[in-house]
Design a binder for these strands. Structure first.
Lengths: 183, 183
DNA sequence: TAGATTGTTAATCGATTAACAATC
DNA sequence: TAGATTGTTAATCGATTAACAATC
C-alpha cells in the first residue's frame, strides 16, 4: 500500500505479510471484513476491526517480577505502552532495589505481589527473574489472580489450568538461527 | 521418563512435549533414530544425535549491539553459554559506556563492528538497540559478515538475502496472551 | 461498460494420527 | 514365548491455494 493510500488490496496486504493473497482474503472472511469488490479494503476500518476482534481496544495492566537488567529493560520498553500494555507494578527480592524507582515505578517486595496485583487489576504477569525464583513468582502471580504469564526465565513452570503461560526462550531463538546456518 | 532411566518410549517423550506419540516416532524416523522395538530410545544417544542433527555440537560466537538494560541482560544471560553460544563482543554508541566492561566484556563503538566481527568470527548478531539504531546496526552486521541476526528492537529491518533475520517481538507476545484472555 | 478485486468454493497440499506388521 | 514398542503405511484431518462467479 502506498503512503497516503486509504484502501488496500489483498495482494498488497499479502506482499507486506509475505503470504498468499487468497490466504489474506480467507482469513479476513471470518470477521466480516470491510472489503469492496474491485476496490480493496479500507485500511483504517480494517485496522479498527482487527483491533476490536483481537481484543486490543482496552488497556491491559502488567506486573513485572525481577528488577534486574531484563526487568528494567521491559519496564522501560516503549512498545508496551504504545500498544496498550501498562506496566503498573515491579517486584524484586533484593533489599537494595526495593524502594527504588525504575521509570517512575516503585520496586516492591515479592510478598506484596498478591495485594498489588489485586488492587491494580493486573491481568498479565511477566517473570524476569533468575530461573530459581521463577516458580515461586509464578505461584504468587497465580494466587493473586493474573490471567496470563509471560516467562523469560529459563525454567519450565508447573502448568496451572487457571492461567495461560507463554515462555520466551531466548536460547531457542539462537538455536533456530544456528540450525539454519547449516542448511 | 523417570529419573535415572536411560531409555524412553515415544509415549514418554510425547507426554513431555505435549504431542502425539506417533508424531514423535514419525519425526524421529527422519534421522535414523536409536530406537529399539519393545524397548524405546536410548536417551543419551538420542540427545547426542539430536544435537548433531541440529548443528549444536560446535560453539557459535555472538555479538550484541546495544549495551543498555536489554543488551546487558543478554550479555549476562547464563543460558547462552550453557547452550554453546558465546557472547564475544558488545557494542554501543554511548561514549559513557564505551570502554566500560559488562560481564568482563569491553563495550566497543559501532564503527568497530566490522573489524571485531571478522576478527572474532562472529556468526550471530543480536540487536538490542532502540528502534532508531536498528537498521544501521543491521547493515553493519551484514557488511561484517554475520550469518544471522536476532532483532529485539521494535523495527522491521530491510531484508537482505545474505542473512537470516529473526525478530523477537515482545509486544506480540503480550498481544497473544491478551487475545486468549477473551476467548 | 471494462477492469479490478472481493468472497467463497473446490482442489490441492501437507501434516497429523491411527493402525499394525516387524521385532526386540 | 508373551509383552512391549518401534518404524512405517495408509487414513484422516486441516490448512493453503487456485479458480471464478459476484459485484463494485
Amino acid at each position: 500500500m502506498a503512503a497516503g493510500q486509504d484502501t488496500c488490496s489483498s495482494e498488497q496486504l499479502a506482499d507486506g505479510a509475505g503470504v498468499n493473497p487468497a490466504q489474506v482474503r480467507k482469513d479476513l472472511s471470518f470477521i466480516d471484513p470491510p472489503g469492496v469488490r474491485g476496490v480493496g479494503y479500507d485500511v483504517a476500518e480494517l485496522q479498527a476491526l482487527l483491533r476490536r476482534e483481537l481484543g486490543l481496544t482496552r488497556p491491559y495492566r502488567v506486573a513485572i517480577a525481577g528488577a534486574g537488567n531484563l526487568g528494567s529493560a521491559l519496564t522501560m520498553y516503549p512498545g508496551f505502552n504504545e500498544s496498550g500494555f501498562e506496566v503498573v507494578a515491579l517486584f524484586d527480592t533484593d533489599k537494595t532495589k526495593i524502594g527504588t524507582t525504575i521509570n517512575a515505578l516503585l520496586v516492591e517486595p515479592f510478598d506484596k505481589i498478591r495485594g498489588i496485583v489485586a488492587a491494580k487489576s493486573v491481568s498479565i504477569g511477566i517473570i524476569a527473574t533468575p530461573a530459581g525464583a521463577a516458580q515461586e513468582v509464578a505461584d504468587r502471580f497465580v494466587e493473586a489472580g493474573v490471567r496470563s504469564i509471560l516467562n523469560f526465565a529459563p525454567a519450565v513452570l508447573k502448568r496451572s489450568s487457571a492461567v495461560e503461560v507463554k515462555r520466551v526462550d531466548l536460547t531457542s531463538e539462537l538455536q533456530i538461527l544456528a540450525y539454519h546456518q547449516n542448511q
